[in-house]
């Protein structure tokens, strides 16, 4: 049997495939990159060839300009391309619009790079599909047993209850610009919030892109300064997390600072950021999803790319699952994305 390291191995620039001569989510410009999803720590500009789902390529074009790579190679979900005999298939990862797992097959060996993923339903992207494999290469952003994200519906209900309770205040929801923002808007729509949702300028283009991909976010309007302060009373405004404590937030009447992130599970994190209403909503798998996925995919071996790998390694040890940490650097363990 082939050693998995001969098919994929960690290098300073990212996971590298020697027989196929390509990288997966490289952190620096390379000749050939397969990109799992559009978050900037995974999708960088300047590669010679960038292969990804059409949605991810569209997101990169929106963020970096249309010349973000010399050549782009769209690979639709389920489609397989072959490179020097190595088969590459992209399968939905359930993280954000266009996010994919990269399934790499070569000489009877199957390795799956999860990218970032989650298992619960998300109305803005295709659901994660488990693929049986020899080696599963997983993220572990929330790889600690304290992280068990509550049901989305409860969190949205918390937000809507607060809006009702404080009708004279604006509710300012910090949400990562790609994925989280659109997901929370969709979840609000599903919960019956049909009023205009105001958005920070930094979200406009990505929201438009989601709309163009058939995700109906309902009525949106820019949260502009020229409006009277009172206009935002009782309204919901979505903004990038960094804007919550920014001078930008002063235009709203006594805003309730809400923040949609898996990190909000820990009160000290909420307190640190001055968040009054934590919304525990993540685009990453929580502890239960990570361990359930490993059980379901049942790989011969687990590799962990980034996050809190030590606890997941410990769990694998207790379960008798062979596992190693790759300790890849450059993927942000950032509070904003989560």
């Amino acid at each position: 049997m082939l050693k998995p390291e001969s098919l994929l191995c960690p290098k300073p620039d990212g996971l590298y495939c020697p027989p196929g001569d390509f990288y997966i989510d490289p952190v620096r410009p390379v000749d050939r990159a397969v990109i799992t999803h559009g978050h900037s720590d995974h999708a960088r500009s300047g590669h010679h060839v960038a292969a990804a789902t059409p949605e991810t390529l569209a997101i990169m074009g929106e963020r970096y300009g249309q010349d973000f790579a010399h050549t782009v190679e769209p690979i639709a979900y389920g489609q397989t391309v072959t490179r020097n005999g190595v088969e590459i298939t992209l399968v939905p990862a359930g993280h954000v619009l266009g996010s994919a797992q990269a399934v790499i097959r070569w000489k009877g060996l199957t390795m799956v790079v999860s990218g970032d993923y989650k298992r619960r339903r998300d109305p803005t992207c295709a659901a994660f599909e488990p693929v049986p494999c020899d080696v599963f290469i997983s993220e572990a952003t929330f790889g600690l047993p304290i992280f068990r994200h509550p049901p989305d519906g409860d969190e949205i209900a918390k937000l809507l209850k607060s809006v009702k309770q404080f009708p004279e205040r604006a509710h300012l929801v910090g949400a990562y610009a790609l994925g989280k923002a659109q997901r929370i808007i969709m979840l609000l729509r599903e919960a019956g919030w049909d009023r205009t949702i105001y958005i920070h300028g930094a979200l406009e283009r990505l929201c438009a892109l989601y709309q163009a991909h058939g995700i109906d976010l309902g009525p949106l309007a820019p949260a502009t300064t020229d409006a009277a302060k009172g206009q935002f009373a009782g309204e919901i405004i979505v903004a990038p997390p960094s804007a919550l404590q920014d001078r930008w937030s002063r235009r709203f009447p006594d805003p309730v600072a809400a923040f949609a992130s898996g990190w909000m599970r820990v009160r000290a994190r909420a307190r640190q950021r001055g968040v009054e209403l934590p919304i525990i909503l993540s685009d990453h798998a929580d502890w239960g999803e990570l361990t359930d996925t490993i059980r379901e995919v049942a790989p011969g071996e687990l590799w962990i790319t980034h996050g809190r790998e030590e606890a997941l390694l410990r769990w694998c040890e207790l379960q008798g699952i062979k596992a190693r940490a790759l300790a890849l650097v450059g993927y942000e363990d950032d509070e904003d994305d989560g």
Binding site: L144, P145, I146, R265, A268, R308, R314
Partner: peptide
């Protein structure tokens, strides 16, 4: 597992909160 609990406690920093989560 006590090891997982210890790491969790280190991360959260508050006993009641850690226990409530794990």
């Amino acid at each position: 597992d006590p090891t997982l609990f210890r790491w969790s406690y280190d991360f959260v920093g508050d006993l009641a909160e850690t226990v409530s989560l794990v």
